[in-house]
Write a protein that binds this DNA or RNA. Structure first.
Ligand code: MN
Ligand code: MN
Ligand code: ZN
Ligand code: ZN
Lengths: 142, 142
DNA sequence: CCTCCAAGTGATAATGGAATTCATTAATTT
DNA sequence: AAATTAATGAATTCCATTATCACTTGGAGG
């Protein structure tokens, strides 16, 4: 099943429509998979492509997609939120270089056991988690 | 050595002074240790105590204290930043209940090994890290 | 096809946390 | 004491995000 079809299913299942603006936003996200985009980034790229979508709609759509588990909202240490497609298979997190702002991704499979121990210890049902390591990347250390 | 003296040392060592506004802000933080306070919280409590400090100074001081490692800046999933005193002995992180917004703290000593493996694998020098688990606390689950 | 109408959109204004400005004040040095 | 420097705070600005509201869209039902 194509990625876009899969997403349409999620929308329809939650009683939403795949409107033109929503499809255009999804296309931008798919075309830029692997990047971390802000709402404004997406708004700009749509304008540049001659397929403008209102900024308010971009924000609303990103929020909706986050609720549906299509996207993740990321907070690096600046003022904006960044978005990336959620990969249902492998979850990853981010190393944030304080010198050059490079973002390096790492998988968290090794943290599974730790998470389970936290759930047991606190009777807390974990539905999501976010891990950030801040420091200096291999280009910037020393 | 008293907590306030210890902090004064950090300031002086970094060529800053322990001015009255800085001391007042530090007192609020010490009096409310264990809480997670916003800049506005601190500003309000100072006003209520009859020891007002300008909001700009509160922000500047919190930023300075973060740089000096006296405070940690926390981002739960809302718009504001929260601050807490950094305990040099035990680092902790937060479970965030999506239903009642309770914040539960947990220690991260078990994550030490994982952090070291990340440093090795990516040649990344970790100077700080932030871990959040989102979900439902024992009062809210089910 | 048409009509209807809830759902969705988008230009614009409003919001609010945080950063900046700049005149004033406090502390330090000469 | 004068001069230099650091810090303060009221006011302003910034800027990402949210709210508003008149308008548009597009699918369900005829
Ligand atoms: Mn990523
Ligand atoms: Mn805490
Ligand atoms: Zn770097
Ligand atoms: Zn709860």
């Amino acid at each position: 099943m194509s990625r876009i079809k899969e997403i349409e299913n999620k929308l329809v299942h939650a009683k939403y429509k795949l409107t033109t603006p929503r499809r255009l936003i999804m296309e931008i996200l798919l075309e830029n998979e692997g990047e971390h985009l802000t709402a404004e980034d997406i708004h700009n790229r749509l304008r540049e492509k001659g397929q403008p979508v209102g900024l308010a709609t971009v924000y609303r759509t990103l929020e909706l997609f986050c609720e549906l588990g299509i996207l993740s909202r990321l907070n690096f240490e600046d003022a904006s939120s960044y978005y990336e497609l959620e990969e249902h298979d492998q979850h990853h997190h981010h190393l944030i270089c304080l010198a050059c702002n490079r973002i390096i991704e790492f998988s968290d499979e090794l943290l599974e056991d730790f998470m389970v121990s936290i759930e047991r210890k606190y009777g807390f049902e974990v539905t999501d988690h976010k891990i950030k390591y801040l420091g200096y990347c291999s280009h910037c250390r020393n």
